[in-house]
Nucleic acid binder design. Structure first.
Lengths: 289, 289
DNA sequence: CACATCCATGCCGACAGGTTATAGATGACG
DNA sequence: CGTCATCTATAACCTGTCGGCATGGATGTG
């Protein structure tokens, strides 16, 4: 009988949390999706796994039996997948569009020097996935900007801290300014990241610095190119890391120093340090700064 | 990283067989489907698992690593699923429409006497699945008629052997006959089972007894009711087990003894005899005859 | 040079999984 | 005693994936 390991992870989360609602939050899916997947697993196995009540879901004997063995099975699979990738000598590195920077080629060179025979596969992710493919298992390690959704589940080392600046249309009045304070622009429309990215989106809308002041969203973009176009068009302004002035210079877009907001941090994130190859890559990252 | 165990079974089959084409035959899927699923697994893992050549597919080092551990993982999952079902105290029994007979209630009664607290869930399957849900894992044990597709993969005990007779329209000339020889009716249109059922369909079209004589198919049916209607309507004639005269008596349909064909066998099939509960059920079946 | 044997690709229909919105059931609380 | 808050279940919709069939392309073989 075949099953997707995702179903088993869902089941384990529900067994752990005791309610569908909470498990759904942990898994970043909606509660109806969980309801159906759990029911589907019960159908597949031909056994009721939970007794439902207003208070939540509690395990039946069959559920207990399953819950006792599923974590080990999932661990075994994760281990197999890791070993398989290791045997292929490919390290998959995700990076967020705006987290790439001058150091990347040096890091890759240092890594291939330390691990001859290994190939590094770089995968750029859109802003719709600030975890750069880590959470879906698409990559082994990722260069990201903090904070990102689900960050607590990963091992993270900060590589670089840089100020956040303001990106504005060159045609607008702010472009001529020497400096701007965040308090002056709280009513401006902002160009934002997609809605599902939670803390990450908030960070780039300066929600923390607004003290409750509402956000006006002028546009939503996923890629640097759309982002630059939206700003040049005057659809809104946006926070950006200072290095964007070098990487994303474009006629029509001006970067202005900004007061009153904290810095942005670039970090290297991964599942943990059990894998020595990943650890080597992390070391190369740390050595590059 | 999540994966469907079906993908892993596909992979294992290809690794075992060495070519996609042969593995596809073993798995009862088409070769293009396998091509894509293997490619998908490689994508998911981010590693090439096979080197393709005209001669077939041979494992890369990454493929070797995976192949070394996948069978144990699949076994572990199958064991977990079995234990979970056992904890639920539900035995799922599949039965083919025409394999059900007088003995069934007695078998179930004997089983529940031997295993108090257990519930038997009977699932009737259409003729589109002569394995009665075994092959998909929908049931733990099944009452079937031999031969059925993929039969070699299962443990099988014959319960009962009965002659095959001919079902004809009462309005036709054959209905008045005392006996009929198979050689007389090779040119008649037959009412057949769905095309994907292979050996099973052939068995009921008397392909073995035809000596190459081609089959005319007058209708295709999946359920006894359609089958009876098709025969009564004169869409074709059909082979049937002798007991059909009792179970599927209907005005307009006449059963005539038939010479020149072998008997039909009812059997109990299951994955093996490791599961003591399934073994008990099998014992009850054997004791009932 | 036709043929057999592989694997890959394009197209299409069916279905599964996700989302949002909403219903139903049941304690907790003013 | 109504009003919430908190659960799970269901409905409607959209998209991506899987399977099938048909076909193409590459490569040895008689």
């Amino acid at each position: 009988m075949d099953v997707d390991t995702r179903l088993l992870r869902y089941f384990a989360a529900v067994a752990q949390e005791g309610t569908l609602t909470r498990a759904a939050a942990v898994l970043y899916v909606t509660q109806p999706a969980l309801t159906r997947q759990v029911a589907r697993l019960e159908d597949l196995l031909g056994a009721r796994l939970f007794t439902r009540s207003k208070a939540g879901m509690s395990l039946t004997p069959a559920g207990e039996a399953l819950a006792a063995r599923v974590p080990a099975l999932l661990d075994a699979w994760d281990g197999i997948a890791r070993e398989t990738r290791a045997a292929a000598r490919v390290l998959r590195v995700g990076f967020l569009a705006s987290a790439a920077n001058e150091a990347t080629p040096g890091i890759v060179a240092a890594f291939t020097a330390r691990r001859p025979g290994w190939r590094v596969e770089m995968r750029q992710s859109s802003w719709a996935d600030p975890a750069a493919g880590l959470s879906t298992g698409d990559v082994d390690v990722a260069l990201v900007r903090l904070p990102f959704p689900g960050q607590d589940a990963w091992a993270v080392d900060v590589l670089l801290t840089e100020p956040r600046v303001l990106a504005v249309s060159s045609a607008g009045p702010l472009a001529a300014r020497e400096r701007v304070a965040i308090g002056e622009v709280l009513d401006e429309p902002f160009v934002a990241a997609p809605g599902a990215t939670g803390a990450w989106r908030d960070h780039w809308l300066a929600v923390e610095e607004r003290g409750g002041h509402p956000v006006r969203v002028g546009a939503v973009t996923e890629h640097p190119d759309e982002w630059l176009t939206a700003i040049a068009n005057g659809d809104g302004i946006a926070l950006a890391p200072a290095s964007a002035a070098r990487f994303y210079a474009r006629p029509g877009v001006t970067y202005v120093p900004l007061d009153g907001v904290g810095p942005s941090r670039v970090a290297v994130a991964r599942a943990g340090d059990r894998d020595p190859v990943v650890r080597d890559f992390v070391d190369c990252c740390l050595a590059a700064f």
